[in-house]
Amino acid sequence: MRCPYCSAPDSKVVNSRPSDDGASIRRRRECLNCVRRFTTYERAQLEPLMVVKRSGPREAFNPDKLLRGLTLASEKRPVDPAALRAFAYGFEDEVQTAEIPATEIGRRAMTFLRPLDDVAYIRFASVYRDFDSLERFIEEIRGLKGREDSPAQDDAPAPTPDGNGTPS
């Protein structure tokens, strides 16, 4: 494994253990040249998940690209980076098809972010949905607010003939 710091071609494995529920192996390595340590992850690579872009071309799914988008949306927010990493690197395992539209990846990412943090959700949505005006941004925030209010209304007892919530 080439060292990411000095580009030396040789390193030694210092520690190795299962990661991501056994789906990958985490290895701590030490460069034989500069003696700095770094971490690598090894996964079995089967048929790569292909992403169908909006404009038509296909490209291999890259969890780092998804993680970068989630991280940018969650910057300076109380969102656990480990949760973002687990979602991005576990995404490919959750998809049951050989290819997926890019829009579906964005939709699933928004569904993932929604319960974690409203601001991160809105930030991601603003890029994913390509808000072109302030009105569109405000409309999304109002929709978010409406979804917060809905569960509380569902939990309220249904009105009864006597008006106090108890059956007559």
Rank of each mutant, 00 (worst) to 15 (best):
F131K: 06
K65S: 13
P63G: 03
P159L: 11
R29I: 02
P4T: 04
L144W: 04
N164M: 10
A125V: 01
A102F: 12
F91N: 04
V127W: 09
C31K: 03
Q153A: 13
Y128R: 00
R27P: 05
A88S: 14
D155F: 11
D93F: 06
A158I: 06
A88Q: 05
G146V: 04
S24G: 14
F131A: 09
L116D: 00
Y121P: 07
V51F: 03
Q45N: 03
V52E: 15
P57S: 12
S24Y: 10
E42V: 11
V35F: 13
K145W: 11
P9A: 10
G90Y: 01
I138C: 06
N33E: 14
R142M: 07
E139M: 05
L113Y: 11
Y128L: 05
E139I: 02
L72A: 14
E94I: 00
N62V: 10
E47I: 11
S126M: 09
C34D: 09
S16I: 09
S150Y: 14
F38N: 10
R142N: 15
V79H: 02
P78G: 01
P4K: 08
A109R: 12
T166M: 06
P101F: 01
R17Q: 14
K53V: 01
D154F: 06
G106T: 03
F124H: 09
D130E: 15
E139Q: 13
S74F: 00
A152K: 06
L84C: 04
F91L: 09
D118E: 13
E139H: 08
P115N: 14
C34W: 09
E47L: 15
V119F: 00
D80I: 01
G165W: 05
L144C: 04
R36W: 01
D21E: 14
F87V: 07
D20G: 03
Y128T: 11
V79K: 00
R107V: 05
F112G: 08
Y121H: 13
L116W: 01
R123A: 03
I122E: 02
D132M: 05
E30C: 14
P159Y: 01
G146F: 03
T111A: 15
A86G: 02
A156D: 05
P81R: 14
P48D: 09
R108V: 10
G165P: 05
P101V: 02
V13H: 07
E99Y: 01
D117V: 07
G146H: 13
V51N: 09
G106K: 12
E148Q: 11
V14D: 00
V51R: 08
R147L: 12
P63Q: 06
R114P: 00
L113H: 10
G165S: 07
P101T: 06
V52F: 07
